[in-house]
């Protein structure tokens, strides 16, 4: 895809989009993270957001949950302009969103069971027996029912991620945001997590947004992929379709090439000059 074709990656606004991002501009310190980002996430879809490291994928999730406010542009979730919500309205919106943190973010003073039960205890006055059943169901779904009594410090990284996933889905939210959900999972757990994401999507119609780098996993689970680079949406499409697009962005990203529109090296002075070799040949 040429740069002209890249421009065609801009989408038409969708009336059935659960998430709508328009002209998003964000600057953190001196670094421009987003420079007019537009994207839609259709209701009931599994959407993957990909891109080089440091391109702002996690920042995008933080915009969707109101943890960050944009410098310009709008972010709408379920029709609500996130940045303009009052604290109370924002918390009401967050009750309908599940978030899987990159580092799990389990509450270290609580057991696995209590971590998963935490949102239920705070927002739903359920009988203890029902609460127990819900928590055990979610733990069973991630294969950790037997670990309910363990403390977070006793879990491996992959197990902690699965507990965090159980916590993110405990309320059966309308939208789940997964930040690097596949990191640290062994092939069996990975397969089960993929199946779980797909099942939640098909049976409950839960919309999912995944930030991930694992193309093979994304091919199995995602309906649509957005590729973000240099603060903009540079390509979008179905995973298989995108992997075979002949755009410089997709070729470099999916081919893992060092040379291309995304620089592998962080901006630095000339290498030879810095090592003191410049001018020695003379």
């Amino acid at each position: 895809m040429s740069h002209d074709q890249t421009a065609s990656a801009k989408h038409e606004p969708s009336s059935d989009a659960l998430v709508q991002v328009r002209g998003l501009r964000t600057r953190i310190g001196d670094k421009v993270i987003f420079d007019g980002l537009d994207l839609d996430v259709p209701r009931g879809s599994v959407t993957a957001v990909m891109g080089p490291s440091g391109t702002g994928k996690t920042t995008l999730l933080r915009h969707l949950t109101g943890q960050l406010r944009p410098d310009a542009g709008s972010v709408r979730v379920d029709g609500e302009e996130v940045a303009k919500l009052s604290r109370r309205a924002l918390f009401a919106l967050r009750e309908r969103i599940g978030f899987l943190f990159q580092n799990s973010a389990l509450l270290t003073d609580f057991s696995v069971f209590e971590n998963v039960a935490f949102p239920l205890r705070q927002h739903a006055k359920l009988p203890e027996e029902l609460l127990r059943d819900i928590v055990l169901t979610k733990l069973q779904a991630v294969g950790l029912r037997g670990a309910a009594g363990l403390m977070p410090s006793e879990l491996s990284g992959g197990m902690a991620r699965r507990v965090a996933l159980a916590r993110a889905i405990v309320f059966d939210p309308m939208l789940i945001l997964y930040d690097e959900p596949f990191v640290g999972l062994d092939p069996i757990a990975l397969n089960q997590v993929l199946r779980l994401i797909r099942t939640l999507n098909r049976t409950l119609g839960i919309t999912s947004i995944l930030v991930a780098h694992e193309l093979a996993a994304i091919r199995q689970v995602a309906d649509r992929v957005y590729l973000i680079a240099n603060g903009k949406l540079v390509a979008q499409g179905a995973p298989d379709e995108l992997a075979h697009q002949n755009s410089p962005w997709t070729r470099q990203f999916f081919g893992g090439e060092a040379d291309g529109p995304v620089p592998f090296h962080y901006p630095a002075p000339d290498y030879a000059t810095e090592l003191g070799f410049a001018g020695r040949a003379q």
Binding site: T65, Q67, F91, A92, R94, E95, I97, F99, F101, Q102, N103, A105, L106, L107, T108, F118, P119, Q122, H123, R167
Partner: peptide, 11 residues
């Protein structure tokens, strides 16, 4: 360890 953010995200 993002626990405060996690609480905030759980409303």
């Amino acid at each position: 360890t993002d626990q405060l953010d996690a609480m905030s995200m759980m409303a």
